[in-house]
Design a protein around this nucleic acid. Structure first.
Length: 282
DNA sequence: AACTGTCCCTGCAAGC
DNA sequence: TGCTTGCAGGGACAGT
């Protein structure tokens, strides 16, 4: 599932392939993907504009346009952004297709493909962000795009009485972590998912801080995780390989790779499938 | 304010 | 073999 590392990999692909190009034509075939504003707003907001930047906030992709507009995309569970040659056969569930061009080369297409249709494509004027996309202002700090220091993390943990995993998944607390990386981070930090955040001591906070940074950085370097049941690929269709580095996610029943003693247990925490080694993680 | 449970949706795998 | 069922999960929202 696209989390921070996967979305960052897509962002880098957009930066490489799409920034500087002009959107000549916009086709919207999936109404649900544009449910927030409707088809006309997407077509009107994008057609004839140049893409100036490719940014990311948590799991949100944001492209500034030379019109003063912003293209916002969220992949949610099954969304993909693909760059393809002009006229290439579009995959099933291609809901938005952009025909783009550069002055110095031939055109190409950008597709938003999303079988489960949880994903979204939104376009708004920069001045309208608070009205059209209020969720952006509610996001917590992004550990990679903005950095997250130990003091800030300590502040986020302070007074929190739920469980630690739910806090890591809470985009209002920290932006970008999803189910896979939450489990990997907690394992690296040697902390149980059901710890009460406010109860973590100084050493545990430092371990958690390092684990957030280390896991996300390594996953970004690996181009994200492509799972058996996911279709996550970057804009060029390449898979990630961080799944080969997973130490707990998807390893239920296996012996722990870290301590060699425990077995990875699988249970539901914060309403999500959770994998952990209860020998390493305390 | 903080936290939990529900819902949206499709593809795939397991079970009968 | 072919059906049904369950599961996967991000985030908004409603309900505590």
């Amino acid at each position: 599932m696209p989390e921070l590392p996967e979305v960052e990999t897509v962002r880098r692909g957009l930066e490489r392939r799409v920034v500087g190009a002009c959107i000549d034509r916009v086709e919207v075939t999936g109404e649900r993907t544009v449910r927030r504003l409707g088809r006309e707003a997407i077509i009107d907001g994008l057609t004839g504009t140049h893409v100036v930047t490719a940014r990311r906030r948590g799991k949100y992709l944001l492209c500034d346009l030379d019109s003063g507009g912003v293209l916002m995309m969220h992949l949610r569970m099954s969304g993909r952004v693909l760059v393809a040659p002009l006229g290439a056969l579009r995959p099933a569930h291609t809901h938005v297709a952009l025909t783009m061009s550069r002055t110095d080369s031939s055109g190409f297409e950008v597709w938003f493909v999303d079988p489960r249709t949880f994903g979204e494509v939104v376009v708004f004027d920069r001045d309208d962000e608070a009205r059209v996309a209020p969720e952006l202002a509610r996001l917590g700090p992004d550990p990679i795009a903005e950095g997250l220091d130990v003091a800030t993390l300590r502040g986020i943990l302070r007074g929190r009485r739920g469980n630690l995993k739910a806090l890591l998944l809470n985009q209002h607390a920290i932006a970008g972590i999803g189910n896979i990386y939450a489990d990997e981070i907690l394992h690296r930090a040697r902390l149980r998912d059901d710890r009460v955040p406010a109860s973590l001591g100084a050493d545990a906070v430092r371990r958690l801080h390092a684990a957030i940074h280390d896991v996300l950085t390594a996953a970004v370097a690996a181009g994200g995780s492509t799972l058996d049941d996911t279709q996550y690929v970057d804009v060029d269709g390449a898979t990630g390989w961080f799944q080969t580095e997973h130490r707990v996610y998807g390893r239920a029943g296996e012996r722990c790779l870290t301590c060699g003693r425990g077995r990875i247990v699988r249970r539901v925490v914060a309403g999500r499938t959770t994998c952990a080694c209860l020998v390493c993680q305390r």
